[in-house]
Each structure stands twice: as C-alpha cells, then as structure tokens.
C-alpha cells in the first residue's frame, strides 16, 4: 500500500474525510450565463469562462462582484450557504443564480 493510500485509509477509519471542494464552470457565450442556475456547496469555487469579446460581471446587488474580462476566466470561492441571484452590471439582462448548500 502506498503512503497516499495508507493516509486515505487512516482518514476513512477515523471519519474525518472533508467534503471535496469542487470547481464548477459557468460559461458565458453571447451574453448568456450557462448553466443559468448552479447548485454548489460552501467552499466550492465558481469559475466563469467568458467566450465573448465583451467584458461582463457577476454582481450580487448589495454583495460581491466578480469582473470577467473578455475571453478570460474569473473565479470566486463560495464562503457560505445562501441562494443568490446575480447579474451583469454592464448588461443587466444577463442573469444567473447560485444555490449554495452548507
């Protein structure tokens, strides 16, 4: 058994396996967030992949904002369980939702 396997076996044995944090991609193409709604857990990271030649944002009214430059990606690690609707501040007709479980 490799050291890594041994470690996994040990952590399993004492039951402290942390939930694996995931990175979830949201693609932006032609001013559309897809998927428009994402289910995630606190600690997961959302990565917005912007295929447009336009800058966009993911903005929560009265909350956080992520700038997403043209043809680039931007990420946010979700801190807490909450359901938030976000939009693009430059094009408020672009809308998305994050449903974050604990």
């Amino acid at each position: 058994m490799s050291k890594r396997h041994l470690w996994i076996a040990l952590t399993l044995a004492i039951g402290i396996v942390p939930a694996q944090a995931e990175t979830i991609q949201v693609t932006i193409d032609k001013l559309v967030f897809s998927p428009a709604s994402v289910e995630a857990k606190a600690g997961d990271t959302i990565e917005w992949v912007n295929k447009d030649v336009f800058a966009h944002t993911a903005t929560v009214k009265g909350g956080w904002e992520v700038m997403i430059p043209p043809k680039k990606s931007a990420s946010l690690t979700l801190q807490k369980a909450e359901t938030v609707d976000y939009f693009c501040r430059f094009h408020p007709n672009m809308k998305g939702r994050l449903v974050v479980a604990p």
Partner: peptide, 14 residues
C-alpha cells in the same frame, strides 16, 4: 445582429 440586440438591450437597462 442577434448578439448586437442583446448588447443593446443590456445597454438600455444599464
């Protein structure tokens, strides 16, 4: 043009 329409609609709201 359809992408342009979405951009213009976004700008109208902005």
């Amino acid at each position: 043009l359809e992408t342009g329409l979405k951009i213009f609609q976004g700008h109208e709201q902005h």
